[in-house]
Nucleic acid binder design. Structure first.
Lengths: 148, 148
DNA sequence: ATAAACACTATCAACTAGATAGGGTTAATG
DNA sequence: CATTAACCCTATCTAGTTGATAGTGTTTAT
């Protein structure tokens, strides 16, 4: 399950991309029905990661810092929900060995989930906010590499 | 992230399939380094769903009820972790509408995650315990249906 | 100066994950 | 037929997470 936080983040980014200009937190919150204070934290986090920028004071607001066609779903999910991989031993950003697993190489479970992870990454790391708006989600998953 | 519980379940099933005969909870627990009492609950749950059977009393134990090549990863995950879908509005076994989503049909986020879900299902609902043991995980994901 | 916006940090209630505990029921065996 | 060793069941616990709220600080246009 993807968290509410990540969902809100994606929706806020879609809203900002569609608007094409700076929006105030309050506007985004109202338009997307997101709890205002919660959205504040989310945008702040996205800002820390260089996805959006903000202007303070009266007439302040948020705007995309990266172009919408360079912000991927994968990026956003990793920021807010952590690793995409369903097992720590498959994560690139937060690898951790499974303590109770003899050898990683012939862990049957790992093999299977490696396939799942790869195909999820294939979609999420290719699809951008711009794609989502345009309705052209990357459909071609293509060949999923066997995990050797 | 897949839960520890589901991981244990899969490993226990692999162990049972490999053994080819009945095993006692204690044996499985020791062999797979799974907390014994925790495994008890897991096997009980698998039994309730007709995946394994048990024999009570001295010389009791657990054995597969379904053949290993008919038990899919998807089945096991759904029993222990619930829906595979990352959004309630994409789940088949536990569908729930997103309250804050105007129309489901043109929710950009839903569209993208539908692709992810489909490809995950393609792997998990095809790959069986027997496949995992034999090292022949279904590699061909094939065409992932666009979500209309 | 002041109003209105973002920036931060702390806190909270509800839930979940992972496990442990302990008694109940069944069945082989001497 | 008592005993032992297995599964059966339910309750409980602890630590952590999620989703959210609260309150105070800082910046900036007017």
């Amino acid at each position: 399950m993807i968290s509410q936080k990540a969902k809100y983040a994606l929706r806020a980014l879609v809203a900002l991309a569609r608007a094409g200009e700076s929006m105030m937190i309050g506007e985004i919150a109202a338009q997307e029905k997101i709890p205002r204070k919660f959205l504040e934290q989310i945008l702040l986090e996205l800002k820390r990661h260089g996805i959006v920028m903000s202007r303070r004071g009266k007439l302040g607001g948020y705007a995309l810092l990266m172009p919408a066609d360079q912000i991927t779903f994968g990026q956003v999910l990793r920021i807010l929900d952590g690793p995409l991989a369903p097992l720590p031993c498959l994560s690139r950003i937060a690898y951790r060995r499974c303590v109770d697993c003899r050898t990683e190489e012939d862990c049957e479970i790992r093999h299977v989930f490696a396939l799942v992870t790869n195909s999820a990454r294939a979609v999420l790391d290719r699809t951008t906010i711009a794609d989502a708006i345009a309705g052209r989600e990357s459909v071609a998953v293509g060949a999923v590499e066997p995990v050797s």
